[in-house]
Nucleic acid binder design. Structure first.
Lengths: 141, 141
DNA sequence: TAGCTTAATGCAACTTTATTGCATTTTATT
DNA sequence: AATAAAATGCAATAAAGTTGCATTAAGCTA
């Protein structure tokens, strides 16, 4: 199945209309190891309004298609979710690695995250781990 | 030793001049279980310029007096560091708990954080854990 | 304690990221 | 082809943070 078919499927499944802008966002995010910020997306996506982009990203986030993670500057970055995410539950409890040099945010979802026990009285909904350091590319320079 | 003496000591130790604005920031942050955002600080600190506040916060952060953590909106929040932080090393590898109701950010520094092993090629500098959920106050409503 | 040097502050302007309201266009369906 | 709902574009606005520069204050030193 081609990416395009896959994307159309994905949109239909979440009751989102198939539009050019949404397909472009999906194709920009898929297969990327790093999360992408709205400003970065904006600069490469071409003829799509800033506001539209924001709205697409938040719609996708609500539906569980992508997840949002903040980088070292507090800017939102977005990455495609693993397949088992949906509207009701995000499985994005993986490690986000922020490279202090190139500023890329890597989703290291192959790592198992240890369980965390909270103090009494706190109700956990979501957990996330983030690391800062140098990524392989920047380390080899 | 009074708080004021303690703060003056702290500033001198980090080669920062003792100013009214800095003392106010310290007294607002000390003994708080939750981290405070710049906007929140600004609204209560009184007659201190926005820019000055930003500069005080980043100076304190550089010196290891406070640490910065982003909340669910990507806004920077600040909290006093544990005593053993300094310019060269931050010990802020504790859990930050974001309440999805009241938006407060709790520094749960009494919890032991498990070690995380990164994939080969990544060099770790700093690690942080953050959770989203309901805090005790909001849970009891 | 007066003078001096450096650090800190205040102000104005600006940048970046994000949001809202509303008119227009497009999608998907009948 | 007509239609209703959803999506988009545009303009305006908001919020968070930054930069440059002139002024003021802190804390030495004589």
């Amino acid at each position: 199945m081609s990416y395009n078919q896959h994307f159309e499927h994905l949109l239909k499944r979440h009751q989102l209309k198939r539009t050019e802008a949404r397909l472009r966002v999906l194709s920009l995010l898929v297969n990327k190891k790093t999360a992408t910020s709205q400003p970065d997306l904006e600069s490469v996506i071409g003829d799509v309004d800033r506001v539209t982009l924001y709205r697409i990203l938040s719609a996708f986030e609500e539906k569980g298609i992508i997840h949002k993670v903040f980088d070292l500057n507090g800017t939102a970055n977005y990455a495609i979710c693993a397949d088992d995410c949906d509207e009701h539950h995000h499985h994005d409890e993986h490690l986000h690695f922020n490279c202090s040099n190139c500023k890329n945010v890597y989703c290291l979802d192959e790592l198992d995250m240890p369980p965390i026990v909270l103090p009494a009285g706190f109700k956990l909904e979501k957990l996330s781990f983030s690391a800062v350091g140098l990524c392989p590319k920047c380390l080899n320079k």
